[in-house]
Design a protein around this nucleic acid. Structure first.
Lengths: 335, 335
DNA sequence: TGGCTCAACTTAATTGTTTTAGTAACAACA
DNA sequence: TGTTGTTACTAAAACAATTAAGTTGAGCCA
């Protein structure tokens, strides 16, 4: 027996069931153009019902080091994707690859070896080689995060710019005027979107943007700590520091405290993501709730629908973020 | 081209390379008995060198709901396994399945469909059907966690009993005599081992064990909260509560605080795992460091060695835990 | 009406893998 | 010495899937 995938359903069996030739079945399942759409769908449906080589593995390639599962965001994303996938009979194949020229090869390997039937692409970038390649190959995928090619891809994203606006508006309402931004790496769509929202909100509040206050960091407490130190040692340090990730914000809080300042009163700090730690940190961290679990679940559902050739109601789902205000920006909460 | 996995190395090529027939190669690679062990290993080695149908996917089935990736322990475990696997050219396939009769079917499905070449089995149980089945099938696997069939399986574990002893010894040194244990579900080896260490340490300290103080909880803050409430409302409440998981301990701390008591002075609380949150909680939580990352990495290395038929130095690796003392059990740390 | 095109297949060849049915070589035993 | 059995393979058949080449019938146009 060659490597048939399962309990002995062959193309021949399907061919007999649908009354077509083995070749037609093969070509239908491989999406050849010379099989009529109706026949193709019919064959696929019968094949699925008969349990033939089910398309049943989703792929996820974590771009390291920016994305690590030790990052709570990815933990949650993975958790929700895996459990949603499992509940629909799909498995999840996870790999990691540095975000460089090798990356597309990692995707191609999974495609060509047929280990994966569709991808969930995370943390989209400005000119995203992964997305370009998958689109060109017409390989099914769904992006988690806003892209600049919406309309051409399927995606589930939180409105990151809106989140930034909410944070800034809140800080302005608290009386802050010197607001610094520690953004995530500049090539990420997340960073671009957040920056756009930040700038818009600052402008809306009539505040100038000090370019010394615009920086980038990677997703770690360590780097947040380092950069916050720099910001606090400026001749005119900011009174509020906004970070595009909660881990960065935790580092910022440490830096503020290590300078002998108090978070919340001396310097306000806000993050993004609302990881569990945000609630437990000292002081609790104001953050934008992004519900990674919901993002993962929706993206997974969308991808599975696509793989089953079911209609997808909305090609670009946008989830509204909500600002969770805690003591790191609001002293009034200290009772 | 039938579904060959990769760049066109066929049985024929291997057969020519080793000077045997195609059939012999096929049979050797499928572990038939009628190929001499030397030939079989030789063929396998050559096949691997030629890049033939590489065994290259590890499997991990999360037993829900006890194990969720949203649990930081599993996030870290997954992170380390994925990255170690990727660095050695392996992928990781993740699925979830409730820990019941269906579970073995989930494993068998992955085996029979050849999606997975070896398993990492986590959170072993007292009579573990998964382990029994995989042993019987002689399918390669490595267990993360101590088993009661060591010597018969490969495993990487932290010495959980030792961890419990360290916690109890510390609490006793702090003057505690009424120590309660909120253990994880009773059928887990983790729970058995922790309980054994707990009892041993109590006995060693000459303390009686109040059976009212021995309870079980699942891995959640919620359940820890509920059970801690019950403990604190006993006619003679404990002065220290030990939990076998940090998430449980976080719930315990909330319960203590909600009763108007202070964690650390009125009631000491200790956890297990030393997740990142332990450091950030209010007060910081005393916990046993288990370094999930190291466990995952070692387990992954061991499994890959086995798949490559390399010798494995040690069949049952035991990592020593270390107690991290923080304010939740030690007031002296409040400066 | 005849010829052309094109969609939607089928037939048959090809390829990779597995399986069945051997068989050579050697040892053990009567 | 001849029979029997076992080990370690091979040759060839069977089988699954893909692919190339061909066929069929409907529609169209002069």
């Amino acid at each position: 027996m060659p490597r048939t995938n399962r309990d002995d359903v062959t193309l021949k069996d399907i061919a007999e069931a649908v009354g077509k030739s083995v070749a037609a079945v093969s070509r239908a399942l491989n999406n050849y153009e010379d099989i009529s759409p109706e026949t193709r769908e019919h064959i696929k449906r019968v094949a699925r019902e008969m349990g033939y080589a089910p398309t049943d593995t989703l792929g996820l390639v974590l771009p390291t080091p920016s994305a690590r599962t030790s990052d709570p965001y990815f933990g949650e994303l993975l958790a929700s994707i895996t459990s949603e996938a499992a509940s629909q009979g799909f498995d999840l194949l996870v790999s990691t690859c540095p975000a460089d020229v090798e990356e597309n090869r990692a995707y191609l390997r999974l495609i060509n070896s047929r280990k994966v039937d569709g991808f969930i692409v995370i943390r989209p970038r400005r000119r995203d080689a992964r997305i370009e390649m998958l689109r060109e190959k017409q390989f099914p995928f769904v992006v988690v995060g806003a892209t600049n090619v919406a309309g051409q891809v399927y995606s589930v994203a939180v409105d990151e710019a809106k989140g930034a606006q909410q944070v800034v508006a809140h800080l302005v309402a608290q009386g802050h005027q010197q607001i610094a931004l520690i953004n995530t790496p500049a090539d990420l769509m997340l960073s671009l979107n957040y920056l756009a929202g930040f700038q818009q909100a600052m402008q809306h509040a009539g505040l100038p943007i000090n370019t010394d206050y615009l920086t980038n960091s990677d997703f770690s407490q360590k780097d947040g700590y380092r950069i916050a130190h720099r910001l606090l040692n400026l001749s005119q340090p900011p009174t509020a520091i906004v970070a595009t990730d909660d881990l960065i914000a935790l580092g910022v809080m440490s830096a503020v405290q290590d300078q002998g300042l108090e978070v919340g009163s001396d310097v306000a700090v806000a993050g993004f993501g609302d990881i569990l730690l945000a609630e437990y940190s000292k002081p609790p961290l104001t953050s934008v709730r992004r519900s990674a679990g919901l993002l993962g679940q929706k993206a997974c559902q969308m991808l599975i629908s696509r793989l089953r050739n079911e209609p997808v109601a909305q090609q670009n789902v946008v989830i509204q973020p909500s600002l969770v205000i805690r003591q790191s920006t609001d002293l009034a909460l200290w009772l």
